[in-house]
């Protein structure tokens, strides 16, 4: 579609994905008709606040939606031309870990506490790449060195509790990249880390994925992280992508009221004067009780009558840049505060 560059097919092509969870109040579509692509080697930022469906989108791609209560209702997820939703569990396991890898938010809980670092690093190498124990061990050692863990030989024998949060997340990255995947999904990879460690881990992830030619899907609520690292950006709100485009366009000419609202709501220390923050009024809607029409309409300063009745879909506002807003033409001309 719009994200196709040249004649090469996208690496990942998510089409009309609907993932729902059964709750006390009935089924809730947490991901509600989401389509996007990732090209080889590019970095896509998926931004949104809690409950917007960004993490469930990632879990759907990985085939890790807990079922029940979750369920992928419809859609297709093409990875290198193959629909991940329609292949066998065994084939999916073969792809997961070797072709598509994932780094989770919690470095504390995503490593197995009772296995040594060596066991955990060597397992995917032996499983996916068929390495022998000895070869896998020396490769594991190299990987630790690559992510900047001092004394890698000794640290292989350690258990995760001996590592700091930053080290654990670096080990997760080593593990994720160990089989040279085509796509790395990072779900809030640095949110649990301290600021200076965050910077280390993000820089490392970017450098390595460039080196390996890995495409990255970074899921985050942090617009700064997206501005620094992403080539393209998807902004999600309440189960749907509301704006999609090249990162430069999203930051320089945002065209959805929610994107503009987010950019205006964050305090920024690069701006000289401290103007009062322009807040987005109201609350993030509960996915079980979304407002009718565009679910952002009760919080939107641009909302017109039509917005509470009819749901807009993504429409072009520029080359490769789409926004799901009836008033997009007006909204995109709105002024963002400019740094002096």
């Amino acid at each position: 579609m719009d994200a196709l560059r040249g004649d090469s097919a996208p690496l990942l092509d998510v089409r009309n994905l609907v993932t729902q969870f059964v709750t006390d109040e009935g089924p809730v579509r947490v991901v509600n008709d989401v389509s996007f692509q990732i090209n080889e080697g590019e970095t896509l930022g998926l931004v949104g606040e809690s409950g917007c469906g960004k993490s469930v989108t990632a879990l759907s791609i990985m085939g890790l939606v807990p079922t029940p209560p979750g369920e992928i209702v419809s859609g297709e997820i093409y990875f290198q031309g193959q629909d991940l939703l329609r292949i066998s569990g065994e084939d999916l396991r073969g792809i997961r870990g070797s072709q598509i890898a994932m780094v989770f938010q919690e470095p504390m809980t995503s490593l197995n506490p009772v296995l040594t670092i060596e066991r955990q690093l060597a397992e995917p190498l032996r499983m996916h790449l068929g390495m022998t124990r000895g070869v896998a061990k020396s490769r594991a050692c190299e990987l630790l060195e690559m992510v900047g863990i001092p004394d890698p030989e000794d640290r292989l024998k350690d258990y995760p509790h001996r590592m700091s949060g930053g080290q654990r997340q670096r080990i997760m990255i080593a593990m994720a990249l160990s089989c040279n995947p085509k796509l790395l999904i990072a779900d809030e990879p640095t949110t649990a880390l301290d600021v200076t460690i965050q910077a280390q881990v993000l820089e490392l992830m970017m450098t390595l994925s460039k080196e390996f030619g890995t495409a990255l899907l970074i899921i985050t609520h942090n617009l700064g992280v997206v501005a620094r690292f992403a080539d393209r950006v998807n902004v999600m709100y309440s189960g749907k992508i509301r704006e999609m485009g090249p990162a430069d366009d999203i930051f320089d000419s945002p065209s959805h009221p929610y994107t503009i609202g987010l950019l205006n709501a964050i305090p920024r220390f690069d701006q000289g004067d401290r103007a009062r923050l322009q807040m987005i009024k109201g609350e993030i809607p509960d996915p079980a009780h979304r407002p009718s029409g565009c679910s952002f309409n009760p919080r939107c300063p641009w909302a017109v009558d039509k917005c509470s009745v009819s749901e807009p879909s993504l429409a072009a506002v520029g080359p490769d840049h789409t926004s799901a807003c009836w008033e997009a033409a007006t909204v995109s001309k709105a002024q963002l505060p400019v740094a002096p």
């Binding site: 600021v195 200076t196 820089e203 990162a247 930051f251």
Partner: peptide, 22 residues
């Protein structure tokens, strides 16, 4: 270390990445 939501600024900023852990 703090990434800022400004593309131009992010491209031109000098970054000091500290080595090691706290």
């Amino acid at each position: 270390a703090v990434p800022l939501p400004d593309r131009a600024l992010e491209r031109s900023r000098e970054r000091i990445v500290l080595k090691g852990d706290i």
